[in-house]
Write a protein that binds this DNA or RNA. Sequence first.
RNA 1: GCCCGAAUGGCGGAACUGGUAGACGCAAGGGACUUAAAAUCCCUCGGCCUCUGGCUGUGCGAGUUCGAUUCUCGCUUCGGGCACCA
Length: 832
Amino acid sequence: MSAQDPQIIYDFKSIEEKWQNSWLSNATYKISPDSDKEKYYVLEMFPYPSGRIHMGHVRNYSIGDVVARYKRFRGFNVLHPMGWDSFGLPAENAAIKNDTHPARWTYDNIDYMRNQLRKLGLSYDWDREIATCNPKYYKWEQQIFLEMYEKDLVYQKTTTVNWCETCHTVLANEQVIEGTCWRCDELVEARKMNGWFFKITEYAEELLTDLDKLSGWPEKVVTMQRNWIGKSTGLQCDFEVVGLDEKLSIFTTRPDTIFGVTFMSIAPEHPLLESLLENNPQELKIRDFITKIITEKQQQSNQDVVEKEGIATGCFCINPYNGDEIPIYVANFVLMGYGTGAVMAVPAHDQRDFEFARKYNLSIKPVVIPEDTPLNGKTMVEASTAPGVLADSGDFTGIDSKSAKQAIIDFAKSNNFGDSHITYRLRDWGISRQRYWGAPIPMVQCEKCGVQAVPVDQLPVTLPEDRGSQQNDCAPLHQRTSFIETSCPKCGGKARRETDTMDTFVESSWYFARYTSPRFTEAPLNKKEASHWLPVDQYIGGVEHAILHLLYSRFFTKVLRDLGYLDIDEPFTNLLTQGMVIKDGSKMSKSKGNVVDPSDLIGEYGADTTRLFSLFAAPPEKDLEWNPKGVEGCHRFLNRIFRFVQTHLNTISGDHEEFPATLNPSERELHRKTHQTIKRVTGNIEHNFHFNTAISAVMELFNTLSGLTGGKKKDEIAAPFLSEAVDAILILLCPMVPHFCSELWTTVYGETKSIETIPWPTWDEEAAKEDELTIVIQVRGKVRSRLQVPADIDDATIETLALKDENALKFIGDAAIKKVIVVKKKLVNIVI
RNA sequence: GCCCGAAUGGCGGAACUGGUAGACGCAAGGGACUUAAAAUCCCUCGGCCUCUGGCUGUGCGAGUUCGAUUCUCGCUUCGGGCACCA
């Protein structure tokens, strides 16, 4: 029979409402600017205001809120802001569907979702809230754009871009996921279009080398970024074209194989083709072929591996190393966007070239011979990519392939036909989007003066507020004459505004910096505030942004630094990528019908239970399997604590006598467990945010507490020990279930003493120490017995005791003891 | 194809730096209370066996070690990223 009264009800609804109102009206989490406490900036990736929050948000923001609240307990001045990534296509689609305006839809959603977040009890400084679709925000983005333009970090070009027909807009390379659109999964097609680009490649090397500074990031994310940037070093050199005053430039990472070149492959879009086709008897045939493969490329998504195909141009070029005349082919697998768009083909040592050579009967000439493996071009079945010794390579014959690379590059350099070269896979970031609901690009096209920047004092260039001429759509800017028609800032003549809007990833690339001075009216950032708060100490969000958003934010940080706004190189010191929320084996989604609505859950169990379960069910970086029964378990746990405190209120809240000098066994056990728990929870949070084990530890403490005070209790426990344990439980859980702990704290100590002003508890190593240890006795590595011994026992005594142990002796039998291994305070292994 | 990561009871997950595998929670079974149910509380809970004891067990197969969930090598499966990158 329990000492607790099951009739006591934990009324989470009124408790949560009470505390949320109190936090709101007292502005509890507003930053005090002149604090002399050390700063801590914790940030969760801000949401797109899609309409309602989902479980992924709950998890993300619960994790962030625990960090924020924990750091406040530890005495930091914590910046913990929230805002809205509020430009984007869904707003336009919804506006069409619901016959409203994207702005209306977006702001309504923001109001709704803000309210939902408040019901979770998240400790944000709401005074810093920003919405990126607000002209007060994108004005500064336009200014940054112009300053980048000044610095030659923005340019316009016509190129083949990724086009998503469903979204009716261009996508950046990073937004193409396995050949499909990141947002709608539509297959992406290739299109030639004019657009604006950010020169992210200018920062490729720094983005790569600074990855080494990100020791607080998951290794996985760093690797993904490294691969995405894709640095290759090698040789760039020129092959003269026979009969033409032209050179064909190639890039290779295998200069050691250059004597094995037997043909040349160039991309169908290669600019040299025009001269090659002039007076070419095969011109029509070749043009047909080129058209064919270019259309094929457009139709196929770029993930399909297509059979290698090519056509001879009938033209030749000269290998500068040995004077060989080699045929030039147009090949479908050569990319214009990488290297120089021309590849020296070495079929003996490159699998693609090998397949191509076999198909078109071109010669295969091995020049790098691996140890003990002679190669024969006629009989090889695949390319050999192993290192080896150079053969058939002029003066370089006999050199090992590794040192030959440099020697061959040096030769090109000294003979002025080539040099070492670095190529990146990273492409410039195309930011033009053919959509209405985005930040306008602040440029105009003057009939006389050409492209002109909008002067900074004319910013912001705002979106027209009406929905345009179209009946059922939100017309893109190019259909709105009132927006387009303007005057040239230089000559005052007729000019047209740029009608593309910026990629919404531009907004999210610097919002974390704007939070440091969200209402600043003189510049994008207040340098003083930015340098005080940045970098973000802890950033938390989904791993799906490992490349996209995180790479762009790193790029923007470096740009803003070079524009003089920031004095940091990297925006996020520590990154936590949380796993997905899964139900019935797959990600929650409307189409699968396995969505759990957080609001329903909060209504049924309360915000604290919802938060507690999302933290308890898995460590943050792992996927979280949603289990409704598990939620009930967490709710039960809170209920038990609630009832315990109410039942023992008189003892706990009374005026405490001092801790007695001698402790009875129960007091000792509880006191010890309390200090052990403080130590464990603090360690779990500090070390890797493993809240799941932190919560288990508190559960253990509570189990001990209720066991020692329940029906079978042995000793009376003095009030100070009960009080110490309850205090610890409440403070340790407070970052996770803040309403609950705040309420019980005032129940015990009265309304005047807020739990948030209490320092995080410390543990006493002495108190946490066990009096007795269990020593495991193994015979030949197998556990045979256990000994209870006093904690201060020495190794020799343990050994003696172990060798006398009855169970152990049974297994030793007559055998001779070869060795006895004693592990301090843990185990004895008797080897026979 | 290449590069990462993971694999532990019926389930989610614990286990510090090589030292008691399965903490904590869920589910399940049994019991107490109740006229009954819910709630609450107590007990059992990896598998197998000849069951106060023993054998076995952390995806599979080897290895290192007195001792391996943990380290090494080779596989299998699942997840993620990149994908004709010259």
